[in-house]
């Protein structure tokens, strides 16, 4: 793109013709004006609120309210409770399993869409078929599994109808299994999208060259396709990982009380109006997620890839 060229050109804001005063702003100033609404909204409603719960995490509290203070007890209590570790381990376990499954599905489906489907129309239709559920309600998609997986659900009835099992399977619903299935259902698109985007940028001539040079399909995959799609893989991984770590609805609705998530525990504290410990818990979660995302971002320069 002609970045350098463009930054030299001055941009006029007001129309020239009407004989009004002509304003000439430097390109830099024009950019600032253009991004300022975004910057203001994100600062006011994302950065500042984050700062607010950072501050409140040091506050004192009782049943009546919260009091400005600088206490570390909220953190102390949080970090010394075994429940904290338990819930982090449980969430990480879900995140890891779901990450593995969505990566496998997402990569293979994206590969199929980009390299195997030659017709543009067909590719668009298939991609939309994957994407459309993402634009519908996550709550509805979650509870849709209940009549499907339940004891008398469609899946069990199907299994028994073809005599694969005599008894309905009990572990399907309200179990860690159901939680994983729902996560995969909800989040696989977050993997397909970025990976397909990376794959689409690979020049097909490169693959042909590899084949002509005698590389097997496997070698081409390992040495060319996977390295060139690592941005998409990293981006998808970040999205899936953060969604699972930040979830509180799916675990609540689908685990049948067998598992808790970090955020559902936090929500309980919020409902009990225990804001300072909830804020401390929120800060720990944010730090943890930021650390993991930071590690994944080290693999690729996401910004360079997206903005060009």
């Amino acid at each position: 793109m002609s970045l350098a060229q463009n930054s030299d050109e001055a941009v006029t804001i007001a129309p020239r013709s009407r004989g009004r005063r002509r304003w000439r702003l430097s390109p830099q100033a024009v950019s600032w004006l253009q991004v300022s609404p975004l910057a203001i909204i994100l600062t006011a409603f994302f950065a500042l609120p984050t700062l607010v719960f950072l501050i409140v995490s040091f506050y004192d509290y009782d049943r009546a309210g919260i009091y400005p203070d600088f206490l570390l007890t909220n953190y102390e209590e949080l970090l010394t409770t075994p429940a904290t570790l338990r819930v982090y381990v449980s969430s990480l376990k879900f995140a890891f399993i779901v990450w593995g499954i969505t990566l496998f599905l997402g990569f293979n489906i994206a590969y199929f869409l980009v390299f195997h489907v030659h017709s543009r129309t067909m590719r668009t239709i298939l991609f939309l078929a994957c994407a459309i559920p993402f634009w519908t309600s996550g709550i509805i998609r979650t509870i849709a599994w209940i009549p499907f997986l339940g004891r008398n659900g469609a899946f069990n009835q199907g299994l028994m109808a073809v005599h694969l099992t005599e008894q309905p399977l009990e572990f399907l619903l309200f179990s860690p299994f159901a939680v994983c299935v729902t996560y995969v259902h909800l989040f696989t698109l977050l993997m397909i999208g970025p990976i397909a985007n990376s794959l689409a940028k690979i020049d097909p001539a490169l693959l042909e060259a590899a084949r002509d040079a005698g590389a097997s399909r496997w070698r081409t995959m390992v040495d060319i396709v996977i390295p060139l799609s690592k941005t998409g893989i990293a981006l998808g991984s970040i999205l899936v990982f953060t969604q699972v770590m930040g979830d509180f609805f799916v675990v609540k609705a689908m685990s049948g009380g067998q598992s808790a998530s970090i955020v559902s525990q936090l929500a309980t504290e919020i409902q009990a109006m225990q804001y300072p410990p909830a804020a401390a818990s929120a800060i720990i979660l944010v730090l943890f997620v930021a650390l993991m995302v930071g590690c994944m971002m080290r693999v690729v320069d996401v910004r360079k890839e997206l903005v060009r």
């Binding site: 991004v35 975004l38 910057a39 994100l42 600062t43 409603f45 994302f46 950065a47 500042l48 609120p49 984050t50 607010v52 719960f53 409140v56 970040i238 999205l239 953060t242 770590m245 930040g246 509180f248 970090i262 955020v263 936090l266 929500a267 919020i270 804001y275 909830a278 804020a279 929120a282 979660l285 944010v286 997620v289 930021a290 995302v293 996401v302 910004r303 903005v307």
Partner: peptide, 23 residues
């Protein structure tokens, strides 16, 4: 600003509401 947008996207959703509510 770019990383602010990334952070806003990956922030656990409930926490955004929590922060704004507290504010």
């Amino acid at each position: 600003l770019f990383y602010l947008a990334v952070a806003s996207l990956v922030m656990p959703s409930l926490l955004v509401g929590f922060g704004i509510g507290l504010g």
